[in-house]
Structure formats: structure tokens, C-alpha cells
Design a protein around this nucleic acid. Structure first.
Lengths: 364, 364
DNA sequence: ATTAGCACTCGAAAGTTGAGAGTGCCAACA
DNA sequence: TGTTGGCACTCTCAACTTTCGAGTGCTAAT
């Protein structure tokens, strides 16, 4: 039953391609012309009717062309679409932007999402799935009697700092002492290992009657929480409005609000992020109600320190999967190369693009 | 000619109020009921006709109600609207959010715009107009032979850091030397005073044959550029879609794209930012073509170190000026109190809300 | 100066029509 | 048996028409 003739495949592919291009239901005549199988519209009509029966296509109404169902898209993504290779200009463009963006600032996640959005012309979001972070070292810089700077280096090699102003005076000795104490007992531990007990004992050991220890400990907790909390950045929501399926302002508004809220795109339990594969979630395959008639393409990259980042792009189900997947894949590879630890993948790796996705096929 | 009877004022105010509320042209009957001047719809019709002649109102078509012109809004904003006082809950809410947001992170500008957008339910943007920033002090933390951390404290009391990894080894002595040299000659100067000459001489003085000086100097330049470049943050663009005047997706799209681009809201030459006044720009008063039929409300706050920040809110000309102005004003005051140097304004200051704006009256 | 009354205007919403694209099916054909 | 041309049928979309009602402007009376 699930086997499907070669010609049907070609026809299905033609329908999807055409529909992606025009956003209009595709008729038999159009297919007869574009896909040059040597047969007439009438024949194609018969095939189309069967494809509708099988659930790959549907008709908006009796006398319109055909439109792919989510199942049709799934088939297309899994087997039919030609894995697009980026042109040289495109790869160069992306590399150039990457170099530019990344050295500019390292609040990368925001830039990554903006970049992905610009490249694909769809809304994009980037998120980090940080693993357990610990503090590598503490430094306390004495500025004046009422001011010092906390500098903390984390296991993922990012550095955070905070300026602390005090209502009272401290001497350099105290700072010295606190510094070495914190370096001794607060490094290499995760957030939940910072207990009131630990803070207390440090306070006593440092002879700190002014509660400086708690200030420092609070900063440590803040930094650790902050770095191990997954954060999301969304950009380009407004690009939705360019898509004809979002001509309805209400519909657009709903989805945009959802995205702006840092929408949860991935199935929470999903252990996604193997090698540089790209995952596609089509319409109802999405968990979030708000995404049920949109599609999401996700790539994952190595962000160093055993951390993976995700870049996702959201669009109508009639999305240019091929182009988006190619771009995201290349982008992810580029990011991995720049941020990742370990083995740098070879430069040309975007060719062997693997696409994986929900294969449960059980739609409808 | 420009004098206007008391009753006309009341009627104009009533029209604007009603139109702001309903977004529908306002008829004579409706006014007769809401504004209780003791007179009949017929009388009001006469007055309305005159207000149209004077240019304060207009009719979308012969037999519809009246709608305020930009000039009408201007009059309303300048003289007629009741300066709204926030309720206790509202002020508390804002203060609570401020406390929360501000201590969370000091990449404030982003949070400020988000906050403003949430409060007003319009798109908002925040921007800084940094003045000349200098470096107060340098610290270099030795991590290991190939790694050190640069910490830089700026005149505006923000602290920046950067992890530097070297392909070669350095000893602590060198770090020591560089640190004191940079503290001696790179502090208190602005970006353009960092010349190749200066870098060179430092390099020689430190006996630095490995170009560390240039790395450090580059960081200094980066930080200074970064802090003295005005940055903008835009949030809540999607709230536009809630407004009936942006039901047209194209219109919405245009404006949203403009905003996302970090749109320039203020007349470039504008020396705005006295005390905590609020400025309103109505429709054609805006310089940017894209804003010609929208309105902007802007407040300015003291961001410390002789710097002022701006918070702006964008909406249709039919915007709730009174509420927005009150909220922005209070928000700006709160920010000034928290970030500002100098004299903290008293807690209840949002009452004496001053609104200034373009008074040129020359529309049409 | 105000008001009631009334004819008039005009836009929005609902209904009507016609054209065109695309189908399904049938009978003919290789 | 798979393919094809032909043709009647269906259904949407756009254009046009009709209806309805809100709101006006004017006039004459108070």
C-alpha cells in the first residue's frame, strides 16, 4: 500500500515544487508542462486523483488544483526533493557574515538568530541548551575602598563580571582573602552545590562580618543560573507578513506573539543534536498548538564545552524546505567550526546534508 | 482666528477621546450623549462643521462622522487631554518590574524597550545617546601561559572583559608590565586618541615583541567604539497587528520592517532630553516617511555619566496619548532614579508631567 | 443662538451574475 | 490495460447591483 509508482513520485514532486513557488493550487495542465513526463493532462488527472486518495494531496474545493498535505510534504522532504547545494556566492556570503558577526560580539545567540532570519527570509530563533556549567576561577579587583569588580571565568570559557559598590569600606587584605577562599571552595561546583552552609563557612573563614561573601556568592549563583538556563533569541518575526498564508492579521498576530514569547519549538523530550543533521517538522507534527499549520526547520551546532546550540526557522508549511535546509545546515556547520571544540569538520561538509524527521506517517 | 471657543474645545476633546476608544468616526449624536454640554446634536453639528473648516477635524466621506486631523491631535495633546495619573497599582507594577529587570542584567537597553512595550501595548524602542566614553582602568588577569583576561572599567562605570588566548607563551612579568603601562597611558582618553603611534610606543616600552599591545589596544578601541555608538533596541513590533489601522498586512509589514531596522525615530538634529518631559510627534510631524501616519511618544531619562537614554513608543495617530505619556514619563523617572547620577527626583514626581512637542501648527 | 425636522449622500454589507480554471468521467484508441 | 481527447459540471473570484442605515446640511420655527 505504501509503495508508490515512480511517475506518481515525479508528479507529487512537481506539485510541491510548483506550490512552493506560487502558493496557488496546482492543476494538471501546469504539471504536464513543467514536469516533462511524456503524458497528457488527462493521465495526470488520474494520477492526481489517486494521490489524493492516498493522502498526499488534497483539493481546497472540487474544482481547484491540488495542494500537498502534511503527509505529502513529508514524503517530499524525505525522498523527493533535490538536496539543494548552495552556490559559491551563497557560501561565501554566509562565511563572510559569520566572520563579521562572531567577532563583533559574543552575545552570539542573538546574532545567530538574526543571521538565520536574514539568510532564509523567514523568522528564526536560536537557542542554547547549556549543560552544567561550573566556575573555573574567581578574581576580585580592588578599585577603591567602596568598590570592587568581580570577575568570574566559567567552564565554558566565557567570562562574566560585575561591579560591586558598597556602603562601607573594605581593605585590600579582605579582598585578597575572599579571593583565595572563593577560588578554593567555589570553583568546579555547580549551582545547586552552593548552599547556605558553604556560604556561611566561607564567611566565617574570611572573617567577613559585612556579608561580602553572600554578595559574591549571589553573583556566582546568578552567573551559573544564567549560563545554564537555556535562552532563546527570536528575530525577523515580521518576515511572516511577507508570506501570503499570513495575510490574515489575526493569524499572523497569533504566531508572532507565540514566537516573540520565545516559543518552544522543539518537543521538550527531544534528544536532538547528533551530527550536523537537519530536522524538519511539518504542520501537525509540531507539538505546539500555535505551530500546527506551520513548519519548522531546525539545525544543531556544536557550541563548545559539550554544549549544542539550535537554530530554527519557522514558516508556512509551503516553505522552501530545500533551500532553508541547505542554508541552515551550512550555517550550523560554520558555527560548529568556529565555536566547537574538538574536530573541525572539513570545509566542504555541507554537501553531505542529512535530513531527518518525524517518520511516523500517521497524519490523519 | 486661532482662538477657539470653550465649547468647541470640549467638543474636539470629546471627538478625540471617542475616536481613540473606538477607532470609528464620531457622529454628532454620540457627542451629545457622552460630553454633557446641554445642547442638541444639531448644535453640535454646526460646531463640528466649523471645526472641520478650521482644520481640526475631517470627514472620511460626506456622510460619516468626524475624525481628528493631525492638527486636531496636536491641539488635544497640547491643551485638551486630561493628564492621566497612574493608579497606585500601575505605579507599583512598574516599579516592581523595574527592580526586577534592572538587577537581572545590565544590558538594560533591551529590557527597557521590552518593558515599555509591555506597559503600553505598543511597539517600543529604546536607545542610548552615549557621549564620549573613556577607560577608567585596565586590569589584566593572568590565567595560564597562553591565556589572560582583559578587564576594562569605563567612565560610565560599566565593566567589559575579554578572554584572550595566545598561540605563544607569556610570563606574568610581561602581563604586569603591560598592565601598568596601559593604565598609565590609555586611561582617560577617548577612542580617537588611541593612535598607532601610542600603541607603538607602548609596545616598545613594554619590550613586547609579540604584539600583545596591539591586541589589548584593539580591545580598548572595540570597547570604546561599542559604548559610544548609539544602540537601539526594538520590541513588540507585533503589537502593531492588534491595531485596526494595521489590518492591512502590507502597511503593517512596512512599518514593522522599518522599526526592526532600528528605525530612526528622532529628528537627527534634535537636542532632546531636558528634564523628564515627554515629547509627542504626531503623524506628519515625523521626519521618517514610514512614520508619516503614525505617532511617536518619546521620553528621556538620565542614564548616568552625563548620558541620556530615550524610550519611544510607536502607534497609530489614534493612540492613547494620555495613557502612554503618563506611563513613559513614570518609567523614565524610575530609570533616572536608578541609573542617574546626581539628584534623585522625589518619588511622586510623575504628577508634574510636562508634555512638549512640535508646535509649528503648519500642517496642511 | 438653538433646535426639530427632513431630504440627501455615501459607504458597507449582502446579493447577483458571469467568466474561467480545473475537475471527473466516458468513450475511443494503441 | 494504460492513455487520451472531449465535454459537461462545479466552484471560486471579481465585478457589478441593491439595500440599508448612519450621519450630514439645510431650513424654518422657537
Amino acid at each position: 500500500m505504501s509503495t508508490i509508482s515512480d511517475r506518481k513520485k515525479k508528479i507529487l514532486a512537481a506539485v510541491v515544487d510548483e506550490y512552493i513557488r506560487t502558493a496557488e493550487p496546482v492543476g494538471s495542465k501546469a504539471i504536464a508542462q513543467t514536469a516533462n513526463l511524456g503524458c497528457s493532462p488527462a493521465t495526470i488527472r488520474n494520477e492526481l486523483a489517486e494521490l489524493v486518495n492516498m493522502g498526499y494531496l488534497e483539493q481546497p474545493h472540487t474544482s481547484a488544483g491540488r495542494v500537498p498535505t502534511p503527509m505529502g510534504y513529508r514524503m517530499y522532504v524525505n525522498e523527493l526533493m533535490d538536496r539543494q547545494k548552495l552556490s559559491l556566492e551563497e557560501t561565501e556570503d554566509i562565511n563572510r557574515r559569520l566572520n563579521q558577526k562572531l567577532q563583533e560580539l559574543d552575545d552570539t545567540i542573538d546574532n545567530v538568530s538574526r543571521l538565520a532570519s536574514q539568510l532564509t527570509d523567514y523568522p528564526a530563533l536560536a537557542l542554547t541548551t547549556q549543560s552544567a556549567v561550573t566556575i573555573k576561577r574567581f578574581d576580585i579587583i580592588y578599585v577603591d575602598a567602596n568598590t570592587f569588580i568581580l570577575v568570574v571565568m566559567l567552564s565554558n570559557n566565557s567570562v562574566r563580571n560585575k561591579l560591586v559598590r558598597l556602603p562601607i569600606s573594605v581593605d585590600q587584605k579582605m579582598i585578597q582573602r575572599l579571593s583565595s577562599l572563593f577560588n578554593a571552595s567555589f570553583t568546579g561546583i555547580t549551582e545547586d552545590q552552593i548552599t547556605p552552609l558553604l556560604i556561611n563557612s566561607t564567611e566565617r573563614a574570611a572573617d567577613d562580618s559585612m556579608g561580602l561573601s553572600s554578595v559574591i556568592a549571589a553573583f556566582a549563583i546568578e552567573v551559573l543560573t544564567d549560563s545554564s538556563t537555556p535562552t532563546a533569541a527570536v528575530s525577523g518575526e515580521n518576515r511572516l507578513l511577507g508570506q501570503p498564508e499570513f495575510r490574515d492579521p489575526d493569524k499572523a498576530h497569533r504566531l508572532m506573539s507565540y514566537l516573540s514569547g520565545g516559543g518552544h519549538i522543539l518537543p521538550a523530550d527531544d534528544s536532538f543534536g547528533g551530527t550536523d543533521e537537519v530536522r524538519v517538522l511539518i504542520g501537525p507534527e509540531n507539538v505546539a498548538e500555535e505551530l500546527k499549520d506551520s513548519s519548522v526547520v531546525i539545525a544543531s551546532y556544536d557550541a563548545g564545552d559539550n554544549t549544542r546550540g539550535l537554530i530554527g526557522v519557522v514558516g508556512p508549511t509551503r516553505m522552501d524546505y530545500s533551500a532553508v535546509a541547505a542554508k541552515l545546515s551550512f550555517l550550523a556547520a560554520g558555527l560548529s567550526r568556529r565555536l566547537g571544540g574538538g574536530e573541525a569538520p572539513p570545509e566542504g561538509m555541507h554537501n553531505k546534508l542529512i535530513i531527518k524527521g518525524d517518520n511516523s506517517d500517521g497524519s490523519r
